[in-house]
């Protein structure tokens, strides 16, 4: 009987190609395809949460152990840059949501506009991050390379931060622990920035594909799923920002 079925096979496979070009042919319907990929994206984000979860746990434990070091370490972060970055990301989430909406409404021009805007905002975020990191570099606050805890042993040597917080000098053993803070700061923001870089790269890809009208023909799953990813990266920042910048401010 196997032979019997095999002969008919080629024709059947061809006959099943009566669906839109964007439908992968192992799916029965477009809806199923959309559901499946969407579900996969949510699962992936779950994975990502566990991934960042490990970092958050480490941060919370260390912060509990070396509380004064973490407080003074966080004083080194610029709340201005941090806040503006948060604003930038929230705006980009908004433009991304609008982009998904535009794709859903088959509006190619608005889709391009919003994807472009999201891209610009994403790059702006990375730019600001670069400025912040650069400042750490100049102050010798990059752990492991040429770290110096002078700003914590003698806060007055760092007039800008000092006039705002009037930090007390930390005992030497505690001051050394600020390196731990910056290690986690760089690990967390670095991991987040890596996700941003991947996101920005994908935005470029989406932009050029969108120009050919790929997402405005009713099949916008990719844009939608990317949107989920982008919002997720945004949400991670929404957790990072208070943890690193705000929580031990005053």
């Amino acid at each position: 009987m196997s032979d019997h079925t095999a002969t008919g096979n080629g024709a059947v496979a061809e006959a099943q190609h009566e669906h839109p070009s964007y439908q992968r042919h192992h799916f029965e319907t477009v809806d199923q395809q959309f559901d499946a990929t969407n579900f996969a994206m949510w699962l992936f984000l779950l994975t990502e949460i566990m991934f960042f979860g490990g970092l958050f746990v480490s941060y919370l434990i260390m912060r509990n152990w070396y509380y004064p070091a973490f407080v003074e370490g966080s004083h080194q972060l610029s709340i201005l840059w941090g806040t503006s970055n948060t604003a930038v990301l929230i705006c980009s989430s908004f433009t991304m949501a609008m982009g998904v909406w535009a794709a859903e409404m088959h509006r190619k021009k608005s889709l391009l506009l919003f994807i472009g805007l999201t891209f610009v905002l994403g790059v702006a975020f990375l730019g600001i991050k670069y400025i912040e990191w650069h400042e750490k570099w100049e102050k010798h606050h990059v752990p492991g390379i040429h770290y110096s805890d002078a700003s914590f042993l003698n806060p007055a040597s760092d007039p800008e931060v000092y006039k705002e917080y009037h930090d007390k000098p930390l005992a030497p053993d505690m001051a050394a622990k600020t390196e731990e803070y910056f290690f986690l700061y760089f690990a967390m923001t670095g991991m987040h920035a890596l996700h941003m870089v991947i996101g920005v790269g994908l935005l470029v890809y989406i932009f050029f594909r969108a120009r050919t009208g790929a997402y405005t023909n009713g099949h916008f799953t990719f844009v939608e799923n990317f949107g989920l990813y982008w919002h997720f990266v945004d949400i991670i920042w929404i957790f990072l920002y208070p943890l690193l910048y705000l929580i031990s401010r005053y």
């Binding site: 699962l43 779950l46 994975t47 566990m50 991934f51 979860g53 490990g54 970092l55 480490s58 290690f183």
Partner: peptide
Amino acid sequence: VLGTPVLAITLVLVVL
């Protein structure tokens, strides 16, 4: 899906 990422980040921290 839920366990492996924790190992991943742990190993990243070890490498760093």
